[in-house]
């Protein structure tokens, strides 16, 4: 544990040069732009899936994790029981818990600061914080990204949900939005990384997809996605091979 921090969330050291701040804010604004557009598509998809505008907004405000929200809406659209959407959304959100490790190390939030820091621990804020060299920069990057993203995600979601309830989302091709988002999120993991790990990552993706495909006609809606989580558990429990040594080690597939 390093330098614990319990101060106000948006507080940033006065020692941070203006140029650094500008740089961080520029990156945050870029991510925010994406968040606004994705938020709008989420809002429209959510409403088309049967969520009301307030329900779609509760997910954006409180759940606040794009992939999980899309998954919730997607499972809802496919099936009858709304409770089937819960495990898919939560299992996808498990990764946020693991982002807590680097974020805690960098920001060192204590009680009660943990209560509000936790809410902003998502892919983008973690990546932005980890990518900065010094503590003040990391803290500033985390909060700038978190607050910009949160604001634009809400604005986008609301706009999309309101528009989605007044137009036919299918006419705008929005039923292609969710699969495109899922694939775009998955893509970098399939393409980047060490060769030996890549083999296993692709195998996991393929097995997850194949299992889901097989289960569609036999399992209740939502379950094919949850079953795919089982693939991750099996792959994680399997011995990692010769992972720590040489990057070019051949992975027995």
């Amino acid at each position: 544990m390093t330098q614990p921090h319990a101060g106000p969330p948006a507080g940033s050291g006065p020692e941070l040069p203006a140029a650094v701040r500008r740089d961080i804010l520029r990156s945050a604004a870029g991510l925010g732009l994406y968040a606004g557009a994705f938020g709008a598509s989420y809002g429209a998809v959510a409403v088309a899936s049967g969520l009301s505008v307030p329900q779609a907004m509760v997910l954006s405000l409180v759940l606040f994790s794009g992939a999980s929200q899309f998954a919730f809406a997607g499972v809802l659209a496919a099936g009858a029981n709304p409770f089937a959407a819960i495990p898919a959304a939560l299992l996808l959100g498990v990764r946020n818990a693991f982002y807590g490790v680097p974020v805690t190390e960098l920001l060192g939030p204590r009680w009660p600061a943990r209560l509000w820091t936790a809410h902003f621990v998502i892919d983008e804020t973690t990546a932005m914080a980890v990518g900065r060299p010094t503590r003040p920069e990391q803290r500033y990057a985390f909060w700038a990204t978190g607050l910009v993203l949160f604001t634009l995600w809400q604005a986008g979601s609301l706009t999309g949900a309101l528009l989605g309830s007044s137009v036919d989302p299918a006419a705008f091709g929005l039923d292609a939005a969710a699969p495109a988002v899922f694939l775009a999120l998955l893509w970098p993991a399939l393409r980047r990384g060490r060769r030996d790990r890549l083999v296993r990552v692709r195998l996991v993706a393929f097995a997850g997809a194949a299992l889901a495909l097989l289960l569609i006609p036999v399992a209740p809606a939502g379950m094919p996605v949850v079953a795919a989580a089982g693939i991750a558990v099996v792959a994680g429990l399997a011995p990692p091979g010769r992972e720590p040594r040489g990057a070019d080690a051949e992975e027995p597939a």
Binding site: A67, A71, L91, R95, F182, V204, V225, A228, A229, A235
Partner: peptide, 8 residues
């Protein structure tokens, strides 16, 4: 692996 299998 969790998000990879589930996103697929």
């Amino acid at each position: 692996y969790l998000p990879i299998a589930m996103l697929a």
